[in-house]
Design a protein around this nucleic acid. Structure first.
Lengths: 219, 219
DNA sequence: TGAAACAAAATCGGATCCAATATTCTTTAT
DNA sequence: ATAAAGAATATTGGATCCGATTTTGTTTCA
């Protein structure tokens, strides 16, 4: 039996959940294709029990849908769902930003400056994506609204699956995104709350437009 | 071949999930008290496997917290979490109401009228609570925003646990709540969107005040 | 007597096994 | 030859069993 590595704190089920989530977000499983428990179990060297728990958790996150005695599939994302996700981002993120501004410290601002700087220098697309996430995470964690942040995370995970599948992030979009982050950060430094909020809303709108354009909606 | 539009048959794990959720919402388990898998399994006449899956799902909903090799407990709700839930209601519900108004039909309005009428006549507290939920559900389903509604539901479940535990709903509060529902409905009929939104926000604020008063926060 | 050390019991996470159901393949009738 | 019917296979959900860890109880020593 191959050792599964050092799982001192985590459980096998959570490890499987993490692996499957990464795979799904990487577009490893085609939509409407069944994810076979047995195969996953063999690939990861575990039994089907933690695989089943992982699939149950992923269903709760909306990343798969299970049908009794049939299996789990990655569901298609509808245009309506994408639209809804961006509408919800437009509600949640300004709220988080507002609360973050009320609680932000010079240390956090320094951290954000650093992230933006590294983001601008980033050449690798994956590295840039990581820094992009880190920027928002650092900023929003300052808001001290764990429930809201958790809800937002789940929304972004759903959207991310789509975005990564579509490979839509152009260098131009990256530049524009960095610039918008800087604008938000500058507004925060200047104590311009409304300016920061407006920049954020613009940021989200641009994101939404990008997605629509790439996906080619009509709705 | 028979039509595939058959209802999704329930699985044992989902049945256990439903039972446990009902129990938790009814305050059956004390906070910080371990929910023993073996006991649940015996009580329900099933094995521990579906019980474990149920607990995993309930953890994803925030109704329990599991610690490795220790078990699952109903977590305490902090004052901060209550506040956050109401803040999020204040974001999500106006959005849903706005979308609902844009799509509402005379039939739905009739249904809502009926619900309010029955709610006003309701003597039993449980019946009233059910109608209260039905009013919001009917109204918000008209918004056709399933993700948002699902998020709201999960928030309300968390809050409900607290409210039911505290048994806070006084007759006076019921009357006031019914009146607010009528006000919202009247605004919708009159095509007064802003009025409806303002009534809703007031409704949520009152709810929040009610909770704070009953719970007796200070933090 | 009280606390540390050790043993016993309880409980959990995971593995293996079995039953229920779905899917695929084969047979058969027209 | 084709489509319905039935057998064989595949896959899932659940039950039973096992090792790991925590908790509880007992013993021993200062």
């Amino acid at each position: 039996m191959p050792p599964t590595g050092k799982l001192a704190r985590s459980t096998t089920a959570l490890d499987v959940t993490r692996v499957l989530k990464e795979r799904i977000l990487a577009g490893h499983y085609a939509e409407d294709q069944f994810i076979r428990q047995d195969l996953i179990a063999q690939e990861l060297g575990v039994s089907r029990i933690p695989v089943r728990e992982a699939l149950a958790l992923l269903e709760a996150e909306g990343l798969v849908i299970r049908e009794k005695f049939r299996g789990a599939v990655v569901p298609r994302l509808s245009a309506a769902e994408i639209e809804e996700i961006y509408a919800l981002r437009g509600l949640l993120e300004p709220y988080l930003l507002e609360e973050a501004i009320a609680r932000i410290t010079p240390e956090i601002i320094d951290t954000l400056d650093d992230i933006v700087e590294r983001s601008r220098r980033a050449s690798d697309k994956t590295e840039w994506a990581g820094l992009n996430v880190e920027f928002h995470r650092t900023l929003y964690e300052a808001a001290d609204r764990p429930l809201t942040l958790q809800m937002l995370d789940k929304l972004l995970v759903r959207a991310d699956r789509y975005l990564k599948m579509q490979r839509f992030m152009s260098p131009q979009t990256q530049q524009e995104s960095d610039a918008e982050h800087m604008r938000i950060l500058d507004c925060i430094k200047a104590g311009d709350k409304d300016g920061a909020l407006e920049s954020l809303r613009q940021h989200i709108r641009w994101n939404a437009v990008d997605v629509r354009r790439t996906v080619g909606f009509d709705s």
